[in-house]
Design a protein around this nucleic acid. Sequence first.
DNA 1: TTATGATTCATACGTTCGTTTTAATCATAG
DNA 2: CTATGATTAAAACGAACGTATGAATCATAA
Lengths: 219, 219
Amino acid sequence: MEVRTVDTRERILDAGERLFMAHGYEGTSMRQITGEAGVNLAAVNYHFGSKESLMQEVFRRRLDWLNEERMRALDALEAEAAGQALKPSAIVDAFFGTLLRMAGDENRGGMTFLRLLGRTLTEPSEFIRAFLAHEYQAVMDRYKEALFKALPEVPKAEIVWRFHFMLGATSYAIAGTDALRLVTDWQIEDEDSTDRLDRLVPRLMSFLIGGLRAPLPQF
Amino acid sequence: MEVRTVDTRERILDAGERLFMAHGYEGTSMRQITGEAGVNLAAVNYHFGSKESLMQEVFRRRLDWLNEERMRALDALEAEAAGQALKPSAIVDAFFGTLLRMAGDENRGGMTFLRLLGRTLTEPSEFIRAFLAHEYQAVMDRYKEALFKALPEVPKAEIVWRFHFMLGATSYAIAGTDALRLVTDWQIEDEDSTDRLDRLVPRLMSFLIGGLRAPLPQF
DNA sequence: TTATGATTCATACGTTCGTTTTAATCATAG
DNA sequence: CTATGATTAAAACGAACGTATGAATCATAA
């Protein structure tokens, strides 16, 4: 209720977000979190109940808004189209562009949350995947349907696979500011980090749409 | 030297590979590994020295062969081309196709190792990324150069980014037999798992090449 | 057969983990 | 001011962690 409470909760969420991003769920201890947040060790269990619940709350805080925004973006597209078929690239932008534009919004977690999300999607922890699957269910179904309608000549199974591939490329693009050193050891040109982010969006979009619209494989 | 030793080492590597894949590095304990392998708890430290060294050996066992195979594939392409420019799709197949075809080879880790690899590339553990970066350095440089030559009209920075995107899409495609449930709750058609794997390769290849050859973004 | 080095085994070490408990402190309503 | 409920604090819990130790067991060479 009081100011202190909100502060403590928020400080824990911020520290958890940053540390889970940097070291993973299993690799981050309660003592690290409370230490970085500057709160007592017991505070996490008092405010969130458990480490697992904290992790879920870290995600919920950001995903609720993100997925609502994605729904609104699709609403807007469909209203604008007035019954006409949507452009696949517009759907891709509504889903992935909305996500990527979060990176520039520090109030919504910025790059830190995006990297956490990217890493978590491949992480093995069962409860996290179950939680994310549940959180994503509705928005996923909606976007799948939109792509089915936008690409009526493409088999649905292909669309689902390509959606999956797009998720992977995007996760890497976000999570892997470090993993990129696997591919390149030189800092790409002289781009600073905001430059890099501004350019990442169109770069990734071109790639995603190129993949989505690629000729179908013949088996 | 003796039969028992080789058996024990191999059993530990197999168990470690499977468990690291299923629960991650931090999420897997020495007792789980030795339990599943049916060996004594002390065996890991005796044969490998530490948990970290075991993890490295799990990867080295598979990556050494994979990256040599990738080098051979590129050698063959360049010999065949006899100085002519390589087709980008052939390079992509040499790199990613060679990887994906490991999935069908149980003697080389099969799906288990591929899923472990896919997950680890986004994992945060510092020592793993440092190790993988070192293991991959040479083959990465070689393939980058090949793509630069095959796509002389594309800026090098774009190629590096798109290589990165391709890595992400592939990792997900592999790691995410489970994560796929995020996208779809129905089993795709009636494909069994071998069918799914056979079809995954051309599906992913179409996507990757579509993305690689997509029109360049205009900033 | 015996000696030797490699391997396996049971066990314990010291640490760190997530969580719980109980008391102190705080802010606010009556 | 005092009572009350919420929050913070310090300390401890048992469990699980990775690792180390020293004795038992094994295979092999002399």
